[in-house]
Amino acid sequence: MAIVTFRDALNQALREEMQNDDRVFLMGEEVAEYNGAYKVSRGLLDEFGPMRVVDTPIAELGFAGIGVGAAMVGLRPVIEFMTWNFALLAIDQVVNAAAKMLYMSNGQFRMPMVFRGPNGAALQLSAQHSQAWESWLAHIPGLKVVTPATPYDAKGLLKSAIRDDNPVVFLEGEMLYNTKGEVPEGEEILIPLGKAERKREGEHCSIIAHGKTVLIAIQVADALAKEGIRIDVIDLRTVRPMDVDAIAESVKKTNRAVVVEEGWEVCGIGAQVVDYIQRECFDYLDAPVLRVHQADVPMPYARNLERAAKPDAQKVTAAVRKVLYQE
């Protein structure tokens, strides 16, 4: 079994899908000659040439719209944002064009495209570069929103996203690019969008997470297992559509849940998860569902303040103990 980084798993997905289908192209800032700001597209220019691996000017709105236009007439663009923080300049194309084209045209124009790039806080990048956008994007009907946590999932989900006939928002945790995991070679990995995965099995409490926070959930589950507390870790993998069945199945078993996310509290992904839980599992709950999320502030620069603002294992552990009435 090959051990590869998250970034190389994404690179494999892009390479394989570009080999499979000559309608697939990659466009964005620094994706070609520079090999990608985060090296996700390393080597692709050499293999596929400048018509399929396209460096753009710094013009997010413009090249996102070019992707939409190309998708309208049958190409399958992968639009890379250097970070999702910059994608705000292009959000009109994602929300008003890509997400609505199929509906407005009554099915005449499909949007087989992917908008992808790093999402969420890294280290000390401060307020404008440290934001998790999934709740904004998941709000929009017509989009699918994917948040992989592991190299294997990153590869399998990106390949599925590229093959999907809908506009897919693909959010790559910026701190995940160097993480490593098993990705088998010579095997077609396709993970269906909209399906969660249980990353740890347990019956005492559910932790529901997505993206980078899945790693925190696993860390907490493994630590608490040593005390005999067994956690069910549900990795949503796709936050829209969300796998409500997987959430409900887990919470009905454990009767307790903690929901973790990188983003802010108000109207966050966790709020939606909690809503599903109260509807689907009302009679099964033994404790209020708790949420762990970023502090409700713009991200500060100072190391200690940034640490205090982010969700981490300590905060998640505390929440788990609270729903178990162990504090």
Binding site: G65, G69, V73, G74, L75, D92
Partner: peptide
């Protein structure tokens, strides 16, 4: 290809269609 309601937002779409033609 539409029929778009946000002023100017469809101009990049046209560039994208033209990109696809050239592609």
């Amino acid at each position: 290809l539409g029929g778009h309601g946000i002023v100017g937002a469809h101009i990049p779409l046209a560039a994208g269609v033209a990109f696809a033609i050239k592609y």
